[in-house]
Design a protein around this nucleic acid. Structure first.
Lengths: 226, 226
DNA sequence: GATGATGTACGAACTAGATAGTACAGTCAA
DNA sequence: TTGACTGTACTATCTAGTTCGTACATCATC
């Protein structure tokens, strides 16, 4: 896939049709991703997706086989995009505390900016991860966040400012939980507590709290009152 | 509702049918709750629900109007049950640290035991909380967890062991995030990291971490390395 | 206390419309 | 001419919701 027909990316050939399979696929996938993220697998409508693309329903089946095939690709695409974004984070050279702070802030903001991804993950979890299970592509996308947090943590321990014995995957789990929840459960939480958890100042507070929680958690000195 | 026809709760009249509206409603709601939690609003099938009840599809419409009406009642029921369970928590008399520990442990376990509730909340968030918005019943169920954490926190501050300036709703938010995520995202997280986050020992570790995070967060002495 | 009217609780069968998926006939470039 | 690509017009099936009707109980009336 994505083998891009080199040499002939002619922008507008002759007078008639310009075959552009990759473009067609991309257009369909883009629309489909939005629809699935919005309505779920069973809630999304193939006809609706087709209507929003520049192509006919026939093309969806031609390129993606069936509805589930399309969903799977949308899921993969969501993961791919977000992992790509994660790779942008640069914390090399930063001391452990600053690095962890930056990692958490970045994760918080990144999740916030990728609501559709969060929704896809929620939907996939509703399906007990049965589609993710089918996707080698997703499992092959290694989670860069783990490498990052792993390295930060090791450095912190080595420098004697983080306590030893913690599990990087669990640290990542904690950061994920706090950042994910902020997007995934905002609707119900805001309604029940009558407060807009999506308001900028509120988000800043939550982000600050999240950073602080992680820093305090890894800190060497145990601050918890006996 | 639930006005129970006093005096005449005849257990088994004549020889034929025993009309039992409340029983019928309960049976339908029970089955429907499971189906919605499992498949979502659009994924659940009225015919399937009807088939699993002891009644015909006609009864669903007779008692609940339409599919959305049934979903709304299932949502309300899920919240009601969980709030009822929360009320069991007794932390009166415990000192702040022990009380907070217990509250967090309780929340963690309670969420774990009510996966269907978690799933309903996820589903409702996928729908942007539009059904919860329609439900006065749910908003009227006050969240006891907030009262609890509020009181614990105040006592801790008064006793000089918790730092002041924190927001009880935000504390509740943090506890919720960590406990909710553990159930909601277990499928995808386990698959991606090739580790069973539902295994007993793993759960114990996560629970312990969660308690520790909260205790360190509210602790008076700032342990975060500058 | 028999008789008929009325209301509640329920079921079987049906319908209209939605929805995933397909058959077929093309078009266009190589 | 071949083969990749694309649109139009379909179909089979599924699905929410309805129509019509029944069984039983209660109540008013004779």
């Amino acid at each position: 896939m994505t083998v891009a027909k080199d040499e002939k990316s002619r922008p507008e050939a002759g007078g008639g049709r310009v075959p552009d399979p990759e473009g067609t696929r991309r257009n369909i996938l883009e629309i489909a991703s939005r629809e699935f993220a919005l309505n779920g697998l069973s809630g999304a409508r193939i006809d609706e997706i087709a209507a929003r693309t520049r192509f006919s329903k026939r093309m969806i089946y031609y390129y993606f086989g069936d509805k589930e095939g399309l969903y799977l690709r949308a899921l993969e695409e969501a993961y791919r995009q977000v992992r790509e974004g994660e790779a942008q984070l640069d914390i090399e050279g930063l001391p452990p505390v600053a690095a962890l702070t930056r990692l958490v802030e970045f994760t918080f903001e990144h999740h916030h900016q990728h609501e559709d991804f969060i929704r896809m993950v929620m939907i996939e979890n509703i399906h007990h991860g049965q589609y993710l299970k089918q996707s080698d592509a997703i499992r092959d996308l290694n989670v860069t966040a783990i490498d990052h947090i792993s390295r930060i943590y090791s450095r912190g321990v080595a420098e004697g400012i983080f306590r030893p014995g913690l599990d990087p995957v669990e640290l990542h789990w904690q950061v994920s939980a706090l950042c994910f929840f902020n997007v995934s459960n905002r609707a119900t939480f805001s309604m029940i507590f009558g407060r807009d958890f999506g308001a900028p100042e509120q988000l800043e507070r939550l982000k600050k709290n999240t950073v602080e929680m992680m820093l305090r958690f890894v800190a060497k000195d145990d601050p918890s009152p006996a």
